[in-house]
Simulated scan of single mutants.
Amino acid sequence: MEKGVPMCLVTVLLFALTCSLASASDPSPLQDFCVAINSSTSAVFVNGKFCKDPKIVTADDFFFSGLQIPGNTANRLGSNVTRVNVDLLPGLNTLGISFARVDIAPYGVNPPHLHPLGTEITMVAEGTLYVGFVTSDPDNRLFTKVLNKGDVFVFPIGHIHFQFNVGKTNAVAFAGFSSHNPGLITIADAVFGSNPPINPDVLTKAFQVDKNVINYLEQQFK
């Protein structure tokens, strides 16, 4: 250790680093499980959900069926995401994981979005997907890859990412998340479809376009 650097300072810095890393994901559970329940009767409030009384927990609280069913991609994006988070599978509460099925029609897209509370790992089960994510300022570097059946790609927590079907057949992917409720912010919906709307002067300046362009885009998300 360099002369003049007190051991206590190093200890404080290491402690601060550890705390910052720990805050990047869901907290570790302090009990076997905390099955989410919407009622507060005979329950304990933990991490955004009430815990069901362990004495009345059943196997069904840890079970979900339905991911074998293709999602409906007959929409303007040509995609559908079936999310298995704590709202559909109560037993996930506090466990720090969740799951999703992603269906994308030919040339459909799961548009640029981010998960503020969890990292995503995606595996392609059928078809071919062009995927990517963008790093934060100041680089805004784009990482992309074309994925085929069996390929896996990771989208780091909080980064804007997308999946685009570049094949001629339907694509299916399955995604895991490092949170029981990773959250979702779809960029276009948030910017042009917020409620109430963002002042168009803000968006005009931010995107450096005519106000008519902003008005047109906002109309698409009403």
Rank of each mutant, 00 (worst) to 15 (best):
P182D: 07
P197T: 03
L117D: 02
G193I: 02
V134A: 08
D26E: 15
A190R: 01
G4C: 09
H113Q: 14
F133D: 00
T82C: 09
S178G: 15
N148E: 10
P111Q: 07
I187M: 14
R76A: 10
F155W: 02
K55E: 13
N212F: 03
T122C: 12
F133R: 00
H115Y: 04
E126N: 13
A171N: 06
N199P: 09
V81A: 13
P111K: 04
T122D: 09
H113Y: 11
I157M: 13
N38H: 14
G108P: 01
V134Y: 01
A175C: 12
V10N: 07
N165W: 02
P6V: 06
N170W: 06
M123H: 01
T94C: 08
A173R: 01
P156K: 00
P106S: 03
F153P: 00
Q163F: 03
P156H: 00
V172W: 01
D53Q: 08
L13K: 13
V213Q: 02
A206I: 05
F164E: 02
S42D: 15
N195Y: 07
M1V: 09
G167I: 06
E126K: 15
V12P: 01
G71T: 04
I214T: 00
I160T: 14
G4H: 11
T119A: 13
K149E: 15
F15V: 10
A74G: 05
C34N: 06
K49F: 14
D32K: 13
Q208F: 01
T11G: 13
A206V: 13
T144N: 07
G127R: 00
L30R: 12
Y130N: 12
L117H: 07
I157T: 15
A43I: 08
L9P: 01
V154N: 04
I56E: 12
D151C: 05
T73P: 03
A16D: 11
A24N: 08
K49H: 15
F62N: 05
R83C: 07
G78D: 09
I104Y: 01
L9G: 02
G66Y: 09
A173E: 04
C19S: 13
A74F: 07
G127W: 01
F164P: 00
V152K: 10
S23Q: 15
I56A: 09
P54N: 08
N80A: 14
K52M: 11
R76H: 07
S40Q: 13
L9H: 10
A190W: 00
P197M: 02
L13H: 12
G132C: 07
D137T: 12
V209L: 08
N140W: 08
T41L: 10
L147E: 03
G118W: 00
V35I: 12
T144F: 03
V202D: 10
K211H: 03
P54E: 07
E218D: 09
A188H: 02
S65W: 11
F153I: 06
G48P: 10
S25F: 10
E120Q: 14
L13I: 15
S179I: 02
T204R: 08
G183D: 05
I104A: 01
T73A: 06
T169R: 14
L67N: 05
G71I: 04
L114P: 00
D139A: 11
V191A: 05
G91L: 08
I69H: 11
I160R: 01
C51G: 06
S42P: 02
C51V: 06
R141F: 10
H159S: 07
K55Y: 06
V12M: 12
